[in-house]
Every structure is written in C-alpha cells, then in structure tokens.
Nucleic acid binder design. Structure first.
Length: 356
DNA sequence: AATACGGGGTT
DNA sequence: AACCCAGTATT
C-alpha cells in the first residue's frame, strides 16, 4: 500500500517547462519529424497524420517510408491512380483514409497546401485532430491536438474519469505552449505513447507525476474510464474463387466495408439464410457455375466477426493478377485456403471434397 | 450522440 | 479477451 501524496497544484507554465524539457531529452525520433520544429514539411506531416489515425506508430512506420517512396510529392500522389494508393495502403485498414488522401491530393495539387487550421479542416479525411497537428507542426499555429494520448494524459493529470470532448479540448487549449505549440503537441503524444500508457503506466519515470491526480489516487489506470464499445456483429458470407492463387476473378468492393479494395466475389447470407442460397445467388449474378467447398475462414474486425464460406466456381469472367490488386486480409485468408489444399494434394485427391 | 470503419499491439 | 491505437464521416 503506497501513501497517497496529494498532487502539487497545476501551474500551466511549470507543466509546460517540465514536459518540454522531458521531450527535448527523451522525445522520439520519427521519420515525419524531419526539419525545424514548427516548420516541418507539410506533405510529410499530413501523410503521417492520416496514416496514424487509429493506427499505432509502430505499425505506421511499416508503411510510411514505402508510401513516400511510391508518392514522393503531393503532385505524384495526385497524379497516381487511386488503385496504386490503395495498394500502398493494403493491410493497413480504414481504407477511406487512402481514398480521401488521394482526393485531397488532387485539391492540393490544384490550389496549393492550406497554411491554416481552418484551411486544412476543409480537406477530405482531415478532421480537428489532423488539422491541428499539421497546422502546429508544419506552420507553427497555436492549435492543441486532441487524440487518444491527449485524452488519457489529461484525464490522469486532472483526475477526470469521464472526460467529454469539450473538457479535453478546453484543458488542452489551456495547457498548450504559446511559444512551442508543435513541440508541445508532440510532447503530450510521446508521453502518452511511451510513459502514460493505457495498462501499465511508467509513473516512476513520468516528468509530470508530481502533479498527477491519477497517480495520487493510487489507481492511475482508472483514468479515463473505458469507453463503451458497440457489440461485435457476427455475419456469414460466401465467396467464390474462380481461378487460382496467381490469377482470379476479383471485384471492386463498393460502399463502406473495405470499399475501394478488390476481393473475391462475395455474398452475405441473409438473416437465417443458407450458404447454398447465398452461393446460388452469387453464381447467378456472376453467371458462374458453383463448385466444391474449399473451406471456411473467420475474420475479426473491430465491429464484425465474419465467417466466410469459400467455394470454387467456374466462369469465363476475366481474371486479374492477384499480386497487383489491393486486397484485404479477409481475401488473403480466403486465397490461402487454396494454398493449403494444394499442399494436401499428396494426401488427398483434388476432387475429393472439401478440406479445412 | 451513436455508429461504421481494419487490423494489430499490449496486457 | 479486454482495451486501445497520433480519428473521420455519416446518421
């Protein structure tokens, strides 16, 4: 049982000095942080901020350099087909980000980069967080970001278990360094990502621990309280594989779910419908002949648990080169079934029914 | 104010 | 198995 030490009252200028000193000594070196503080390359910052939306830095790093190599300038990005942008985004999730990035690149190529928070906010895919980040990091504008790190750091610092958006923004605005807004924003996010972490915060090394109400409470992880999450919906679907692992009939997915990506032709089961009905409907739409069941796969997304029944089918539809298309993890898993069946050829005849 | 929107990391 | 991640757009 540790003694509860009441936090030292918060003096904004002292908090700024202490966190900025920590940041100058211990901030992360990241590839989008090239150039002078508050004067970073807007293209590099913008691409990074889109890539990092709901995506951890470690994962963003995997995509960032490759993306910039493929599209070194906003003109290159604007001039590329959206399919190429989605291919570079493949596997990263939230593909509307890639579609909006490409759309915004067209606007920027025509009109130039916005130079203010308000100007950035007008671009597709750019919300309050991203606009504040680019405005502060690339143009030195005094805008406080509000992301998951900021939410957690401020909720703990002030001991607020249920911070509202207005509460977070007001406190972020009040704390923002007027002289180093970009560095301050980076500092709070670095603290949240490396010290003030969700599950096991490293309070012993935190530059703000002496002021932290959550630390003083003895249960820092109680702040903020977990967000209520919508239930995961279980859905079933059938897909048909026409072709092989190298070339197959692919369709462009429309709508929100995996929109813009390519994938095996797919049909969701109706409520209390059968896989046979769905398969027949799908093959009728494609004018294809249904074949044997290749296997089932399950795929979890944040809001959905998909069970996909993959069938072989035959048709004269044109096939595409799989390696050139941008596919979701779901479709890569479905194509993987074929690989597994071929490995099993030694033990099992090709026409010998389904395998898993 | 809720919900849809991916895929993976951490505990 | 929770809970979260440098959020945004839509309803």
């Amino acid at each position: 049982m540790t003694a509860v030490v009441p936090p030292v009252p918060l003096d904004p200028s002292q908090i700024r000095a202490e966190l900025l000193a920590w940041f100058d000594a211990s901030g992360r070196a990241l590839p989008w942080r090239l150039g002078q503080e508050g004067r970073r390359d807007p293209y590099r910052v913008w691409v990074a901020e889109i890539l990092l939306q709901q995506t951890q830095v470690a994962r963003g790093l995997h995509y960032y350099d490759r993306f910039l190599e493929a599209f070194p300038t906003v003109q290159a990005l604007a001039g590329a087909p959206v399919e190429a942008v989605l291919k570079a985004w493949e596997g990263c999730g939230y593909y509307a980000r890639a579609r909006n990035l490409h759309r915004a690149a067209g606007l920027i190529a025509a009109d130039g980069f916005p130079t203010t928070y308000v100007g950035w906010l007008a671009l597709p895919g750019v919300g309050p967080y991203t606009a504040a980040a680019v405005a502060s990091l690339a143009y030195g504008e005094g805008r406080a970001v509000n992301d998951g790190n900021v939410r957690r750091v401020l909720a703990r610092l002030y001991g607020e278990a249920r911070p509202t958006e207005n509460w977070i923004q007001a406190h972020a605005d009040a704390l923002l360094s007027p002289t180093r807004p970009g560095a301050w924003n980076e500092a709070v996010m670095d603290l949240g990502a490396t010290v003030c972490t969700p599950k096991a915060p490293r309070c012993a090394t935190c530059p703000l621990s002496a002021h932290c109400a959550a630390r003083a409470s003895g249960t820092p992880t109680a702040f903020p309280a977990p967000k209520v999450r919508t239930a995961v919906k279980a859905v079933q679907a059938v897909a048909v594989l026409i072709g092989d692992e190298r070339t197959a009939v692919l369709e462009r997915r429309e709508g929100g779910l995996l929109g813009g990506l390519m994938g095996l032709p797919m049909q969701e089961l109706r409520e209390s419908g059968t896989t046979q009905n769905a398969l027949n409907a799908l093959c009728k739409r494609l004018n294809a002949r249904p074949g044997e069941l290749l296997g089932q796969i399950t795929h979890s997304m944040t809001h959905r648990q998909i069970t996909l029944h993959v069938y072989v089918a035959a048709s004269d539809l044109p096939r595409q080169t799989v390696a050139d298309a941008a596919l979701s993890r779901l479709d890569h898993k479905a194509l993987g079934l074929l690989q597994r069946r071929q490995e099993g050829l030694f033990a099992m005849p090709l026409t010998g029914g389904s395998s898993v």
